[in-house]
Design a binder for these strands. Sequence first.
DNA 1: GAATATGGACAACCAGGTTGTCTACTAGGG
DNA 2: CCCTAGTAGACAACCTGGTTGTCCATATTC
Lengths: 149, 149
Amino acid sequence: MEPVPMLLAMTYRAMGDQFHDRLRQIGLEPLRPAHGYVFRFLKEKRATTVDIGQHLGVTKQAAAKIVNELDEWGYVLREPHPTDKRAQYVTLTTKGRDYLKFADNLWSDLEHEMAEAIGETTLDTIKTGLAEYLQHVHGDDQPGLRPVW
Amino acid sequence: MEPVPMLLAMTYRAMGDQFHDRLRQIGLEPLRPAHGYVFRFLKEKRATTVDIGQHLGVTKQAAAKIVNELDEWGYVLREPHPTDKRAQYVTLTTKGRDYLKFADNLWSDLEHEMAEAIGETTLDTIKTGLAEYLQHVHGDDQPGLRPVW
DNA sequence: GAATATGGACAACCAGGTTGTCTACTAGGG
DNA sequence: CCCTAGTAGACAACCTGGTTGTCCATATTC
């Protein structure tokens, strides 16, 4: 059996490829994974560019580039931070929320298909198992999201 | 619960980071993941640069760069292909095999610790579950190994 | 109020891929 | 047997998506 990291990488890529293909098939502009993760992050909490970089596991400069793109494309906008005059909150526009909603449906389809392929309980074990491992390794401060290659 | 791909990416990165840290801690030069995957691939079968690229999920040119590095560092060498005068087999040197052996031990340590953290049966379910999913999605032609970010 | 730390912008750089092209060789029909 | 189409590998140009380094303005701490 392949070592665990290889299985993780291959599965990650397999799912990502499918996601990407279907998105294009439907005609929706396929953003990069990072963009999607930013959307998901922003839905949960108000965040600055620095926060985003930390969440993704990249430098703030790299995060700034991503935010700039999303801004240009109309998915997010910046608004002044209420108390800190240096900082800006990045927030989702309606377009951004719509994209996220669509992508979420697609992901849920894919996950459902995975459940059909390997069984619901197996999938559930995988999810909770990985989550538990992450909790065990990193405690509450999450590791970077980006899988360094 | 986080969506599956995020869990995969985070776990992949978490394990990779630990691997990298320990390797450095011990004083061994930490190669990139790609190099390790090449070693593991070459242990299994004789392969050309093109084969390697396919296995990694990158172009042959990218694979050639990696092979060049490994050659310069003394981990692999090229030998003429017995029947095809264009091609070359890339093979592990002793240094390469030693590195692989060492890395394999380290991986097995990490996997063992994972088993302790989440339970052996859970880990087993994860491995077979992911393998089954990959089989279901891709049949026998493997997806690229590189997790596209 | 001085020293230190932080968010964000800008610039230079770099690593690790890609595409494109070329040559030598291989393989598969007419 | 030759002609055509395909392939391994080398080389070069380029691109993307990150990095480091620096700066300014503002916050925080003592």
